[in-house]
Computed example of a mutant assay.
Amino acid sequence: MRSRLLTSLKVSLVLAVLAAVAFGIVWSDYRSFLSQVVDAKAEHIVVLSEGMSAADVVDALVDQGLVDSPSYLKLYLWRSQKGRQFQTGVFRIEAGKTVEEMIDILTSRGDERAVRLRVTPGMNLYELAEAVDGARLADRDVFLARATDRQFAAELGVPGATLEGYLSPGDYSVLRGLSVDELIALMHRKFRETWVPMAKTNPEALAQLKTTYGFADHELITLASVVQKEVVEPKEAPVVARVILNRLSQNMKLQSDPTCVYPPLTPGEKPSPGRCRDAASAYSTYVIAGLPPGPIGAPGEAALRAVLSPYDGPRASELLYFVAKNDGSWRHYFSTTYGEHEKAVDIFLRKTKKGRPGSTPQPR
């Protein structure tokens, strides 16, 4: 009995020593993490938006490459109670700051030189350049030159010739003095934070779109940008996406008015018969077959989701046309035949007829 008891005590003692050693190693590693330098050479700009949780902040810091151990950072935020103290705003993390010092900065007041920049869904690079110039964040032409620079787009991993469609809509707090490249990278990072997780959680939809239409990410973003430009009511985005896919399946030209005026000749240009039928246009889907060569604006989250999950309700595969109702609802009437569509145009646009255009069930 005594021998067994001694053996048990020895085993317990060894396990306790091993646990203490392991804890000591982890604790030392944890302390080293807090004191490690975020970046010895370059400063970084961190933007914390309203409503971000501590977990959201950790994810953002990992995405920016400022933290390499999210578990240690979460432990620190829990132990220090600083996970509840993050502030909204723009923060400059100077070169040489440690992880602990960075968190101190992010839990203090944001830089008061920050300017609010609103990028609305559907806004194109030309409109965005005007907004940036109007906020006195950068010269319009300088911003546009960088946003349409193929090499710069490639450096950011964008497959298109420009950054059109790859800068996310949203409200930004932008620090005055931020370079044009930093501003563009900030908006592109927000786009990736929206699109990449969305695409990863819909692998079957991606595979089907690639198999059926030969779509890669660039074509999907292009499709989403057209959907975005066509809708006002976000609930209609999946239906418009379905109409476009149906027309592509039947080798029909998309005949989407918003594509006629890209790139715009003048700010806020409206579609016209002349522009839509311009044989020299590379974007007008009245002239070209299939999708435009690239996005025509910044798709919002609803439009991006719509291309991955288009409408599949009653007679979904038959929907080929839509026209704005012009009744204050910001919605469209969807048709399965050209005859029904023409009657809908007479009723809703020309106002030459009354009644219901046809029997096609209208998506809700």
Rank of each mutant, 00 (worst) to 15 (best):
M1K: 09
S3L: 15
S3Y: 14
S12D: 07
L15Q: 10
I25F: 13
Y30W: 10
Q36M: 07
A40H: 04
H44A: 04
S49K: 14
S49T: 07
M52Q: 12
D56T: 05
V58F: 13
D59R: 15
A60Q: 14
D68Y: 11
R79L: 14
Q81H: 13
R84A: 15
Q87R: 15
E101R: 14
D104N: 14
V115I: 15
G122P: 12
L125N: 00
A129V: 00
E130I: 10
A131F: 11
A147D: 05
R150I: 04
L178G: 03
L183V: 07
H188C: 04
R192W: 07
V196M: 08
M198R: 10
M198V: 13
L206I: 14
A207N: 14
E219D: 14
T222V: 02
S225E: 02
K229V: 00
E230C: 03
V232A: 13
V240Q: 01
V243K: 05
S249E: 15
M252H: 03
P258R: 11
P258V: 02
V261D: 10
Y262F: 15
P264D: 05
P267V: 04
P267T: 11
P271F: 10
P273T: 09
A280E: 14
A282H: 11
V287N: 04
A289W: 05
L291Q: 04
G294F: 10
I296E: 06
A298W: 03
A302D: 13
A303P: 09
L304Y: 08
R305I: 01
A306T: 08
Y311V: 03
P314M: 02
P314I: 09
Y321P: 08
V323S: 08
A324H: 05
S329Q: 05
W330P: 00
T336Y: 03
E342T: 10
A344L: 09
I347W: 12
G355Y: 12
